[in-house]
């Protein structure tokens, strides 16, 4: 691992300044959250920053209620604390469920909300510095397209990159239209999800809309009363402690057997947490039946472009959407 300087930020302004400054010789600085992804990638040689700016002592480790009945979740909140928070569990069960469906107890104690959103893909070529990879070394090629892509994207991918975003937590956040609060060298701004993450296009090295030095300070979850009827369902290769093959976050607003409103997002299928807007609009005003759910899922998935070894994800995603929605109809 390349030697690096360590700076502990005490306020947002000095954190951003330290990150922008980098090192005198031009090596970049990066923020350090729980380190569960970053330290691993540094050890693998995938990233080699000259400075780590530790942001875990910044005062953004609280969850506050917003005026409208939503939540403002500090970027430094640990994943365990997010999942254990009474208001998260009561108002947004799918969010709490997604967090506890990810990683392990130890990792959730370390991982921060900001770091979780910004974790890098688990594509094996990205993590192997002996292999080409457009995301790691732009222009070097994408061996996954003809190689190992079983766990990679089936929708929205590009010629340059077919990686998936691995976060479970980001899936319900996309469904909820959460807003990412950012402090950067040029001031603060807010970016709603799913627009925070980027499709790979011809710049797969950029996972998100963040610019150098941008610090995520909080994630704001808007109020959504019907999200009390919501669920996160994750399909993986073993029962626990594995990334999603496919996952679904869904919330249903039912009235007299009809879908008044709904939110659906998919994980494990794209470079971003995939908001299923087509399925949502197909379902609004339709009967809450298995046939309608299957039809809505089919409309969403009509746009998929799977690769030879991950085509199974398309029927899997359809079935998981239908099952999750049916579970929500049957829920008390």
């Amino acid at each position: 691992m390349r030697p690096f300087a360590y700076e502990r930020a005490t306020d947002v302004r000095s954190a951003v300044a330290a990150c922008v400054a980098g090192t005198a010789d031009g090596a970049g600085a990066v923020y350090l959250g729980g380190g569960t992804n970053l330290v691993d990638l540094m050890r693998l040689g995938v990233v080699s920053p000259g400075v780590l700016v530790d942001i875990t002592r910044l005062p953004f480790d609280e969850i506050e209620e917003t005026a409208g009945g939503g939540l403002l979740i500090g970027a430094g909140v640990r994943n365990s604390d997010l999942a254990a928070h009474p208001l998260v569990r009561r108002r947004y069960p799918m969010l709490a469920q997604s967090v506890v469906a990810g990683a392990s107890g130890q990792i959730r104690n370390m991982a921060t909300v900001g770091g979780n959103l910004l974790q890098r893909t688990r594509c094996s070529y990205f993590q192997d510095v002996s292999k080409p990879c457009n995301k790691r070394v732009p222009g070097s090629g994408c061996p996954a397209r003809k190689g190992d892509h079983r766990n990679l994207a089936v929708i929205g991918q590009s010629e340059a990159c077919v990686a998936t975003h691995p976060s479970d937590m980001a899936v319900p956040l996309a469904a909820l239209g959460a807003v990412v609060h950012i402090a950067g060298p040029g001031g603060s701004r807010q970016v709603p999800m799913p627009g925070f993450h980027r499709l790979p296009g011809d710049a797969p090295e950029r996972d998100t809309v963040l610019e150098p030095g941008d610090l995520v300070t909080a994630v704001e979850v808007p109020p959504l009363p019907f999200a009390t009827r919501s669920r996160y369902r994750k399909v993986r290769d073993r029962a626990s402690f594995a990334f999603a093959v496919v996952s679904v976050a869904a919330a249903l607003d039912l009235e007299d057997g009809m879908v008044r409103d709904c939110r659906i997002a998919l994980g494990g299928v794209a470079h971003i947490p995939w908001r299923a807007e087509r399925a949502e609009s197909a379902l609004r005003g339709s009967p809450a039946t298995e046939a309608a759910f299957a039809q809505a899922a089919a409309e969403e998935l009509a746009g998929t472009t799977p690769l030879p070894h991950n085509a199974f994800k398309v029927p899997l995603a359809r079935n998981v959407v239908v099952r999750t929605l049916l579970d929500l109809v049957e829920a008390p």
């Binding site: 360590y6 031009g26 920053p49």
Partner: peptide
């Protein structure tokens, strides 16, 4: 993105902290 790629060791020496 900041700090990415293997630009090779720029610092000759390890950096320590007490």
């Amino acid at each position: 993105m900041n700090g990415e790629g293997n630009s090779g060791p720029v610092f000759a020496d390890p950096i320590t902290a007490d």
